[in-house]
Amino acid sequence: MRRLCNTYKSFLKAGIQSGMAYRVNFICFFIGESLYCIVMYFIWKAVFMSSGNGNFMGFNMVDITLYVFLSNLVGFLTSTDSTSSLALEIKDGSIIMRMIKPVNLNLSLLAFELGDKVMVITCTFIPVMIGVEIYRYITLGYIAFNIINFLLFIISVIFSYLIAFYLNLLFGYLAFFLMNIWGFNMLKGSLIKFFSGAIIPIAFFPEKIRVVFEQLPFASLVYTPTMVYMGKYSNNELLFVFAKQIVWLIVFILICRMVWYLAQKRLSSQGG
């Protein structure tokens, strides 16, 4: 176990170094995301102004502002390149360089990506969190920060990231079976954006649709952690949403293993 940790820790460290190599990318990305949040904020503001009483499906203006910034933060923290990094390795055949090493393919990709993101995460997470709390303090007049919600939020984000990672990996494995996964990748992106609550909070959908959406794995990606932070769940609901996250994570890990097994057979009969 210790040995195993050291192995993947080295991937993590390598990832950190590699992440440092692309600082400029990150800055551009950060500016883009911030602009997106501000646009979303004004759109929702317009919606709320026109609805009159300033309350919509249990959300007030402060809630929705919080939601816009938090959901974007979560979306960002849990974003993953696993589809493209895996697909690229499959396409150019460099995946064989991973196969000649005594490591688990999925775990080594995961460890490396985590390392790659460490800097980016610290550079966004802390400022956005502080910003959100300052906003709440100014508009509400009291400190609304809740340490328990915050800790639960962190746990939930970790689960979301892992689910996102394995879900995306699954799309990456498609490259073994399809010549070009570009189209699928686009489709996946929009599906996740829509079903995860990154654009519209799932709570805003009509009851029947909402119940369905909440059971899908996508809700676990963005909606769940955001709502956890905002304290929108009762204790029972909390148990339920965490259980769902764990179940989906296990499901995706298992599917990924199975697909990798099939992919190896495929590689063997048809080549890369």
Binding site: R3, N6, T7, K9, S10, F11, K13, A14, Q17, S18, A21, K101, P102, V103
Partner: peptide, 18 residues
């Protein structure tokens, strides 16, 4: 590892193979 100094690759390999 394309983006990393050569020493980094060796460090990773050192861990992988103990």
């Amino acid at each position: 590892w394309w983006d990393l100094p050569l020493t980094e690759t060796f460090t990773v390999l050192k861990e992988i193979y103990q």
